[in-house]
Amino acid sequence: MSENKKTLSLLERMKQKAVGQKSYGGEYIEEPAKVNARTCPNCGAGRAEQDGLTHCAYCSFEFLSVKLTDGINIKKEDNSQTI
């Protein structure tokens, strides 16, 4: 009986330690889905589909400094044509 008690108290301590400690990378926070829209920080214009994603159609501000390839949803056609 006392043997059993010893085991249970060891397990209890182990459990408290396992659950109570900080995890590397911090606690897990479930973020909900969200929608945002970026406007050009230079001229304030929105990003319209026909103008592409990489540059502002009005002032050529560079939103993305990479050349887009065919990815999952983003495609080559999303490179802005204005530059």
Partner: peptide, 20 residues
Amino acid sequence: TTTYITCPACQTRNTFEPST
């Protein structure tokens, strides 16, 4: 993955970020 979704009315590219 986070992606761009075009508004059917004004053609603005909105950024949609899925939940965790």
